[in-house]
């Protein structure tokens, strides 16, 4: 395609270390608009850390990471790179939705209040009634229209995670990050969350999903990336990687989870 087609996420030799402990080693990858990328690998392989770098919850130690052509957490001026003010970093994050393993819903707010909080506070000039209507729409989209007035503690894990997805969508992000969204769920509740995510993928949302759900990865992902020990071991078409892994470590991992 043409040069204007900047990738949604571009990582070039991204590394991250805490002191002497290196958790990411020279990760390079690209996610195009509308693409779904699944990150799989054993725990401690750095997949969650990488995900958290993308919206600057963690800072990258070396390399460059950009979202929609913009450097994450920094601003470039000539060859100098400046740290972003927290306010600017916050602004950057508004375009990136994130869903956590442990939902992290705000327990003192109802489902609809959770969803409308960020738009009410951050979108200037948006009347509250409109924010609420929009929040209810989003809840309906994740199948929870009837639960809008429930507090998180009154919802099942699967329902909470769907509210969390609706909350992340409320700021109309161009990229969604999922950090093991189904790992804290009872097995019978996993399906309803994956169903919502499939819908989202179908609607053209760019998504990066850290997951252990190989079925989901096979069906929905455009690219599957297998990470271990902070490096990308193997990546490619999910069906290809899952059925015919090239690398020994990938084989060993998949034989345990499939």
């Amino acid at each position: 395609m043409n040069a204007a087609e900047t990738p949604m996420v571009k990582a070039e030799a991204v590394s991250k270390s805490y002191g002497s402990n290196t958790v990411l080693r020279s990760i390079s990858l690209e996610v195009k608009r509308g693409e779904v990328l699944c990150l799989v690998g054993p725990s401690g392989s750095g997949k969650s850390t990488f995900l958290r770098c993308i919206n600057h919850l963690e800072t990258v130690s070396t390399g460059r990471l950009s979202v929609d052509g913009q450097l994450v957490g920094y601003r470039q001026h000539g060859d100098k790179i400046y740290e972003l003010h927290p306010k600017e970093a916050a602004k950057q994050r508004r375009d990136i939705g994130m869903v956590f393993q442990r939902f992290n819903l705000f327990p003192h707010m109802t489902a609809v209040e959770n969803v409308m909080l960020a738009p009410t506070l951050l979108k200037k000039g948006l009347p509250k009634s409109q924010a609420k209507a929009r929040a209810l729409e989003l809840l309906a989209r994740v199948g929870l229209a009837e639960r809008s007035d429930y507090y998180p503690s009154q919802l099942s894990g699967g329902q909470q995670q769907r509210v969390a997805i609706a909350r992340a969508l409320a700021m109309e992000p161009k990229l969604m990050l999922f950090d093991e969204p189904t790992s804290a769920l009872d097995p019978e509740l996993v399906g309803e969350v994956l169903e919502v995510m499939k819908e989202l993928a179908k609607s053209g949302m760019t998504m990066i999903v850290v997951t252990h759900e190989m079925g989901f990865a096979r069906e929905v992902a455009d690219t599957l990336v297998f990470m271990d020990g902070g490096v990308v071991v193997e990546s490619g078409d999910p069906r290809e990687v899952l059925s015919n892994p090239q690398h020994q470590r990938t084989k060993a991992f998949l034989s345990k989870v499939l």
């Binding site: 939705g97 956590f100 992290n104 705000f106 327990p107 506070l121 951050l122």
Partner: peptide, 27 residues
């Protein structure tokens, strides 16, 4: 207050003040 609450608020793009006053302090 659980660390995840601050993280969730930050990930939504809320600033420090909103995170404190709307999410952390009420809890």
């Amino acid at each position: 207050v659980d660390r995840g609450q601050e993280e969730a608020a930050t990930a939504l793009g809320l600033g420090w003040w909103h995170t404190m006053s709307r999410v952390i302090l009420p809890q």
